[in-house]
C-alpha cells in the first residue's frame, strides 16, 4: 500500500513534528500477571513507533506472521494480514518514509461499536480483540476500522500455533500478541525490531509513569493516526 504523504497527514490534525529521540530500548515489562489475575483497567498497553528509525525491512511483519501462524495462500487480495508496512511519499520533495500499521488498539474502537454479537471487544487493559467463538464473520468491523487493520479468514486453516487458534469464517487482527503479553513478554514485532531491525518500536503500559514508553510520550512529540477521529489509539507514532 502506498499513500501520498500529504493525504496521510491530512487524516489527522497536524501536530508538532520535531526531532526525535534516540535510544529506544526494549520495554521493561513490570511483571507478568499471574494466571489467576485478570487483565486490569489500571493498565493500558500500547506501542510507540519511531518511524525515523524504521528502515525498509519488514522484519516486524514476518515476525508477527510467524508468531501468530498467519500464513497465506499467495493471494494478496484475500490473505490475512495482521500488520503491514505502509510507504509514504511527499509528492513535492519525494521524501519517502515507511511505517508499520496494525490494529491501533483504540480506546473508543469503531469495530466494537458496530459488532452485532459482542465478538469485538476491548479487554480491560486496552487490547482490542475478536472473540472468535462469538464472531459470525459478518465483517462489519472490517468496514468500520479506519486503519484497514482487520482481515477475514476466507479459507480453511491448518498448522495453527497452539497459542493462536485461527479458523475459516472469522475476523482477526493484531492481538498485540496477547498470549505473550499475558506471560510478561513484548509483542513479537517489537522484540524482533529491537533485535534485528531498526529498534523503532517500543511496547509498554501507557498508564505507568515508570515505563520508557510513558516517559517518551510525556517528553517527546508523538501523534496518533487519524487523531481527528478522537479514538485515542494505543499505538502512537513519532517522526511522521
Amino acid at each position: 500500500m502506498s499513500v501520498d504523504r500529504r493525504q496521510f497527514l491530512a487524516w489527522g490534525t497536524v501536530a508538532a513534528g520535531a526531532a526525535l529521540a534516540p535510544g529506544l530500548r526494549l520495554i521493561e515489562l513490570a511483571q507478568a500477571r499471574s494466571p489467576q489475575e485478570a487483565a486490569s483497567v489500571l493498565q493500558r498497553w500500547g506501542l510507540l513507533i519511531d518511524i525515523t528509525k524504521c528502515t525498509d525491512c519488514d522484519r516486524c511483519v514476518s515476525a508477527c506472521h510467524e508468531e501468530n501462524g498467519v500464513s497465506g495462500h499467495e493471494r494478496p487480495a484475500t490473505d490475512a494480514q495482521w500488520i503491514r508496512t505502509v510507504g509514504l511519499r511527499d509528492t513535492r520533495t519525494g521524501h519517502a518514509q515507511t511505517l508499520p500499521l496494525m490494529c491501533q488498539h483504540c480506546e473508543h474502537p469503531p469495530c466494537v461499536d458496530v459488532c452485532p454479537t459482542g465478538a469485538s471487544f476491548k479487554r480491560d487493559d486496552g487490547i482490542v480483540l475478536v472473540d472468535k467463538h462469538i464472531c459470525i464473520g459478518c465483517r462489519y468491523c472490517v468496514m468500520a476500522c479506519p486503519y484497514g487493520a482487520r482481515s477475514f479468514v476466507h479459507e480453511a486453516v491448518s498448522g495453527q500455533k497452539a497459542d493462536v487458534p485461527r479458523g475459516k469464517g472469522t475476523v482477526e487482527a493484531c492481538t498485540l500478541c496477547v498470549h505473550r503479553v499475558d506471560r510478561g513478554e513484548a509483542p513479537a514485532c517489537v522484540q524482533t525490531c529491537n533485535r534485528d531491525g531498526g529498534k523503532a518500536m517500543a511496547f509498554g503500559d501507557l498508564n505507568d509513569a515508570s515505563t520508557e514508553i510513558h516517559r517518551r510520550l510525556r517528553s517527546e512529540p508523538s501523534r496518533q493516526l487519524r487523531a481527528d477521529l478522537a479514538l485515542n489509539t494505543g499505538v502512537r507514532y513519532q517522526g511522521l
Partner: peptide
C-alpha cells in the same frame, strides 16, 4: 479470552 485468566 475476555479476562485474560490463563489458569491451566
Amino acid at each position: 479470552v475476555h479476562q485474560g485468566l490463563r489458569e491451566p
